[in-house]
């Protein structure tokens, strides 16, 4: 049995595979309760069957095509995270870090109790992950999430791949930036839940059903930029490495 101090620097990686949104939400809640009780922090990795979720204060006008959504049997779920409307689907790597931002601080000290700093770190992890796949990504001021430039050299390479030319040209017309990862978190007693959705091999057509995060921005994915589907297990491994570098915890795979 580890002491509480040790638990605060340990993060257990649990890969849930393809899991229903509600089931994963239940697991998140259990993990939050465990961390609050002094247990090890958890990094949950998963993919969800197609589902649309509405953050607190989401605007329903950002759901663009309700008829198509119900025809495809996609559920719309209101949820306790920040941010507007988003979509999860197979091929999108969903990351739920259940981390304690306030371990044993003397009263009155803020320490890591900084929501903006935490979200900044999640963006940094994503940018580092994408870099390891040769993709230059960045944040845009005032907008949470991770973006790539529509005229990114790596995208230009992708346009030479047969079949992708038309889509990429369409993306370029819709502005300078494409969104590759979305972010929305919840916090209870400084323990985090919800997190990141990173488009790896996601079917990007699904995003036509919504206005992601209420932004006029097209979505992209690692596969779209590289011109080929990407091995999800490699992305997960790489992501854990990037978390390790950014947060400094010891990551252990759950057995």
């Amino acid at each position: 049995m580890l002491s509480n101090i040790e638990h605060q620097s340990v993060c257990e990686v649990r890969d849930l595979g393809l899991v229903d949104y509600d089931a994963a939400h239940g697991i998140q809640k259990e993990c939050v309760a465990r961390v609050l009780a002094g247990g090890a922090q958890v990094l949950l990795l998963c993919e969800h069957p197609a589902v649309i979720t509405l953050g607190r204060l989401a605007q329903e006008v950002n759901i663009l095509n309700l008829e198509a959504i119900s025809r495809q049997g996609i559920r719309v779920v209101p949820i306790d995270r920040g941010g507007d409307v988003t979509l999860h689907a197979p091929g999108q790597l969903v990351v739920y870090p259940i981390l304690n931002l306030a371990p044993c601080l003397p009263a009155g000290r803020q320490g890591n109790r900084d929501l903006r700093l935490y979200m900044h770190k999640l963006e940094q992890v994503t940018i580092a992950l994408l870099k390891s796949f040769g993709i230059v990504a960045s944040r845009i001021s005032e907008k949470t999430g991770v973006f790539v430039r529509a005229d990114n050299p790596s995208i230009r390479r992708a346009t030479s791949t047969a079949g992708l030319t038309q889509d990429s040209a369409q993306e370029s017309k819709c502005g300078t930036w494409l969104k590759i990862a979305s972010l929305g978190i919840g916090v209870r007693k400084w323990v985090t839940f919800h997190g990141l959705g990173i488009n790896v091999n996601t079917d990007l057509k699904l995003f036509d059903l919504i206005k992601p995060c209420g932004l006029d921005v097209r979505m992209t994915s690692i596969a779209r930029i590289k011109g080929n589907p990407v091995d999800m297990s490699r992305v997960k491994q790489q992501l854990v490495e990037c978390f390790k570098k950014e947060f400094g915890y010891e990551f252990r795979y759950a057995t």
């Binding site: 953050g55 607190r56 204060l57 306790d80 995270r81 920040g82 941010g83 929501l115 903006r116 979200m119 949470t144 999430g145 972010l183 929305g184 978190i185 919840g186 916090v187 209870r188 007693k189 919800h194």
Partner: peptide, 18 residues
Amino acid sequence: DDDDVVEVVTDKAVFNVV
């Protein structure tokens, strides 16, 4: 005293105030 009583939203975060 440690009940979450109200949710507030800032940026992309929902925070529970105790």
